[in-house]
């Protein structure tokens, strides 16, 4: 081979290489998604269905408010649980596994920057969480819709001597107010945002942890402390109260280091009919984006020169 030819190889390589390629990120993200899907994670839908359909038959002699509330509570509880588990366990399962199995060698020895690998994994898992939440929401809204109509029919039947149109209208209004409402979608969105931040946490942890189990445990601890964040903040910035300096210092550290996941708990309010302002919703979305950006950055810093 002539000198010219080899020299041009170097130039080719420099020219052809893209510093950041969305298609590579997508390839990794989609691969992650496929992998999880083929691990049959969607079997959880069976459990979810049993849960929310079961919730319908448990408490039949209750008031309709209670019945619909329990249905919503069980569904949202299950959604929160599944979404958080998927994001944490999914991340913890896949990245350390890639390292342990040395699958990562074959990926990183392709022209793939490590940052793209991390972002791809994160997107893949978040995508899986999104798809599973969409599936759960479909089922949930269908059951809720079916239930609210069922309850309406029962209540109308219970009125002696037949209900007047005004009574029917009134019943419909009060029952449907506890049923399918667009605000509930925002509740699902908040569950998603929280799970996305949890995935970010697990991503950071998995870049320095050496095992799946360790990643899961550490991420779960961060997840729980993240929920008690507001308590820490109350200590740190008390309203009129003064706590010990040490306590405030510790609480401050907790608040600075751990994510605030309590922020995303808006379902409890939505279920009692509170409506959330668009500004607030966008704020939550923005903060999630902020968290994910910072967490990707930190994982990259930790991962960029990691000896594999």
């Amino acid at each position: 081979m002539s000198a010219d030819k080899v020299k041009s190889v170097k130039d080719d390589l420099v020219l052809q290489h893209k510093l950041f390629s969305l298609s590579r990120v997508w390839a990794i993200a989609f691969n992650t998604f496929t992998q999880l899907v083929r691990m049959k994670v969607f079997y959880f839908m069976l459990i979810f269905s049993v849960l929310i359909i079961g919730a319908n038959f448990l408490f039949l002699n209750f008031t309709f408010e209670q019945e619909l509330k329990i249905l919503k509570d069980v569904s949202f509880g299950a959604m929160t649980l599944f979404a958080s588990i998927f994001s944490i366990v999914g991340t913890a399962l896949l990245i350390p596994k890639d390292i342990e199995d040395r699958t990562l060698y074959t990926i990183l020895t392709k022209p793939v920057p490590r940052f793209e690998y991390l972002v791809g994994k994160l997107i893949g898992i978040i995508f899986l969480v999104a798809v599973s939440l969409v599936l759960m929401s479909f089922l949930f809204f269908a059951v809720l819709y079916f239930r609210q109509h069922g309850i309406l029919a029962e209540e109308i039947k219970m009125i002696r001597g037949g209900a007047t149109d005004a009574q029917k209208e009134y019943l419909k209004e009060t029952i449907f107010a506890q049923g399918v409402r667009p605000e509930l979608i925002l509740g699902v969105l908040a569950v998603f945002l929280k799970a996305a931040v949890a995935a970010g946490v697990a991503l950071v942890v998995s870049t320095f942890a050496s095992s799946t189990l360790f990643t899961i445990i550490v991420s779960l601890v961060v997840y729980f402390i993240g929920h008690a964040q507001s308590l820490a903040l109350e200590y740190y910035f008390p309203e009129g109260q003064i706590h010990g300096a040490l306590q405030r210092f510790i609480a401050g550290i907790v608040a600075v280091v751990f994510p605030n996941l309590q922020m995303f708990n808006i379902f409890d309010g939505l279920i009692t009919g509170q409506s959330i302002s668009t500004t607030l919703m966008f704020r939550l979305i923005g903060l999630t984006g902020f968290y994910l950006t910072i967490y990707s950055m930190i994982s990259w810093i930790l991962f960029a020169k990691k000896e594999l």
Binding site: D12, L13, H17, L108, T109, V112, P113
Partner: peptide, 18 residues
């Protein structure tokens, strides 16, 4: 540099894939 891997094929020892 990542670009250095632009034209490399690597077969690790006992490879393991997805």
């Amino acid at each position: 540099e990542t670009a250095s891997r632009g034209s490399v094929g690597f077969l690790p020892e006992n490879p393991y894939f997805y």
